[in-house]
């Protein structure tokens, strides 16, 4: 298992280098520059480009950037008066983590619950309800859903604040739900399909033939087996969270990393864009690694083939 994790970390490092490289060169294709202000003269722009090293040949810039990253320096934000990118991200992180984490929790718990209820009561009201929720969840874009939530629960019913406010936990609810919705949808659908399939499996029949109660059959035999493949959706769910956060953070005015990245792109703030991309990639790689480890814990077949002695 240890060997397996080390292997995965090595692969992760190589992936990160590739991501940094590709992003670095892709950014060069982005039209415009951070110094687009009409107030700047051509000479001033020239001086700024010189000062930030943008006039050096690309390979030189690339090597300089990589060597800085190795030292833990992610460059500085040009727009935000030379604040280090790492500090910027660190400052925005708590907001993104709070809302994103809450969304993942809501998404997984409600999704698994709805999926299980639907599978246990097939063709009932709850089954059709879950299917409807799932279809809407994958087909309504996050910004529409977020705006509808704001309109209905924020404005009409006046239950929760429309805009994110630091220090007001109630204001986390709407953005978290808006982010969680597609996760609820995919998790519920997946869980339902898995459970229905498992209920038709031979080992469930054997468990019933032993005379176990329906409860024991469901909890001890079905759910745990269904969870194994469902954990896989947590990977895509993270992508949904990352993509969704850029939109949702904007709609709800959350000062998080998604917002930082969108601002960075709008102002061509090179190192901020790269920094955010690196952060998101790292997050994704770490989550995939965690998912793999969880797999090993709940599925003995993987544990053994991964080299762990029992």
């Amino acid at each position: 298992m240890i060997k397996y994790i080390l292997e995965r970390i090595m692969i992760g490092i190589v992936t990160m280098i590739l991501i940094i490289t590709i992003n670095f060169f892709l950014l060069q294709l982005l039209p415009g520059s951070p110094f687009n202000s009409e107030k700047l003269t051509t000479e001033q722009i020239e001086m700024l480009n010189e000062a930030y090293g943008f006039n050096d040949p690309l390979p030189v810039q690339y090597v300089r950037y990589l060597s800085k990253i190795v030292q833990g320096d992610f460059g500085i934000s040009i727009i935000n008066t030379n604040i280090p990118v790492a500090d910027l991200i660190y400052g925005k992180l708590p907001h993104t983590i709070k809302v994103g984490g809450l969304a993942l929790l809501i998404g997984a718990v409600i999704g698994l619950f709805l999926g299980s209820v639907a599978a246990l009561n097939r063709n009932s009201f709850w089954d059709y309800f879950t299917i409807t929720v799932a279809i809407l969840g994958v087909s309504i874009p996050g910004f529409v859903f977020g705006a509808v939530l704001q309109l209905f629960f924020g404005l009409k019913l006046d239950l929760v604040p429309i805009i994110y406010k630091i220090g007001d936990p109630r204001s986390f609810i709407l953005p978290a739900v808006a982010l969680a919705y597609p996760i609820i949808a995919s998790t519920a659908r997946y869980m339902r399909t898995e459970l229905v399939e498992i209920f038709n499996s031979d080992y469930i029949l054997l468990a019933r033939a032993k005379g176990l109660t329906r409860r024991a059959v469901v909890y001890k035999h079905a759910i745990r087996n269904a969870l194994i493949p469902v954990i896989t959706v947590l990977g895509p769910a993270t992508i949904v969270l990352i993509g969704g956060s850029t939109v949702i953070e904007r709609i709800f005015g959350i000062p998080g990393i998604g917002n930082l990245m969108v601002d960075g792109i709008n102002t061509r703030d090179h190192f901020v864009i790269l920094g955010c991309a690196i952060f998101y990639s790292l997050l994704f790689i770490v989550i995939l690694l965690i998912i793999d480890v969880i797999y090993g814990v709940i599925d003995p077949r993987i544990r053994v083939s991964g080299g762990m002695k029992n």
């Binding site: 499996s201 031979d202 080992y203 029949l205 054997l206 468990a207 001890k220 035999h221 745990r224 087996n225 194994i228 709940i298 599925d299 003995p300 077949r301």
Partner: peptide
């Protein structure tokens, strides 16, 4: 049952 490969719970 017929198929011993599928009639035992794989995670227990």
């Amino acid at each position: 049952f017929q198929d011993p490969m599928t009639s035992l719970n794989p995670v227990m």
